[in-house]
């Protein structure tokens, strides 16, 4: 799905939905995503009452529990501003699954649909809506680096945001993206799958870690915190120090200028 708005309708305000994983395990990725939005002149609003999109319960077959959590999130964004999510997986839940979740409640479904229409994954929003052109404005002065990209399965197959990350990285002169073997394959996380069937999850995750290592990349990025944590902690267990970053952190670090650091 390609979404975008003409540049004269560039939003001045956006909501930020951090996701529960970013909130508790990667808050720096959330701060960096907000910084990236703010440096484009957008005011970022963070409703303090947000928790989780509800996906863990939904994919485990506990739809009622997912609904009760999703219902709270739907009510958090009263103004007609875009809702930016630094995760293809959680954005996919809000965009595609919320309307399904409320299929039996027309009024709530209408609300869910209205929200779904303004949910954006971070990379998609930066590229298509804000239409960032970093290569024209800033110089990527950091050391040249090679990176492997892991795109979450939801981002790739449900949100269609695979090219967006590559396009953003392509705007940074010093960044060279290297391809890993079976790049389109899942990292093995799968949410509660990693706890329910840990042996299979470990086998898939180890193969992904092997592929990223074998690519020779100096670093890896993912726009999804779930995959990132899975790959990071798998590598760490193997005693491997290959650094991995959330896309937002990677971009913010590369684009940092002295006045950004305030």
């Amino acid at each position: 799905m390609q979404r975008g708005t003409p540049s004269d309708q560039r939003p001045t305000d956006v909501y930020f939905f951090a996701t529960c994983l970013v909130d508790l395990f990667c808050p720096e990725a959330g701060m960096d995503a907000i910084a990236l939005l703010e440096r484009e002149g957008v005011a970022v609003h963070f409703p303090q009452d947000q928790t989780c999109c509800g996906q863990p319960a939904y994919t485990s077959g506990f739809a009622d529990q997912a609904r009760s959590v999703a219902l709270k999130q739907i009510q958090l964004f009263p103004n007609d501003w875009p809702v930016i999510v630094p995760s293809g997986s959680c954005a996919g839940m809000m965009r595609n699954d919320y309307p399904r979740l409320f299929a039996d409640q027309p009024e709530l479904q209408a609300q869910a649909r209205a929200l779904a229409g303004r949910v954006f994954e971070l990379a998609e929003f930066l590229l298509n809506v804000l239409q960032v052109k970093w290569n024209e404005r800033v110089q990527d002065r950091s050391e040249p680096v090679t990176v492997a990209v892991h795109t979450s399965c939801t981002a790739r197959r449900e949100m269609g945001t695979y090219e967006h990350v590559h396009a953003l990285l392509g705007q940074l002169a010093g960044v060279k993206v290297v391809t890993q073997e079976r790049e389109a394959e899942c990292c093995g996380f799968g949410g509660t799958f990693s706890l329910k069937l840990p042996a299979i999850s470990a086998a898939i995750s180890d193969d992904k870690a092997d592929a990223i290592k074998a690519s020779g990349a100096q670093s890896y990025v993912s726009a999804d915190c779930g995959c990132l944590l899975n790959i990071r902690h798998t590598l760490e267990k193997r005693g491997d120090a290959l650094p991995g970053k959330h896309l937002a952190t990677f971009l913010r670090e590369r684009l940092s200028t002295p006045d950004d650091k305030s």
Binding site: D23, F25, P27, F46, Q48, L195, N230, H233, K237
Partner: peptide, 21 residues
């Protein structure tokens, strides 16, 4: 549980994003 079978433990950040913001 199953997570640390092949991974290092997940550790909460020093502060949540909610608290930072």
């Amino acid at each position: 549980s199953g997570w640390t079978r092949s991974r290092t433990p997940l550790k909460a950040a020093r502060r949540t994003l909610h608290e930072e913001l």
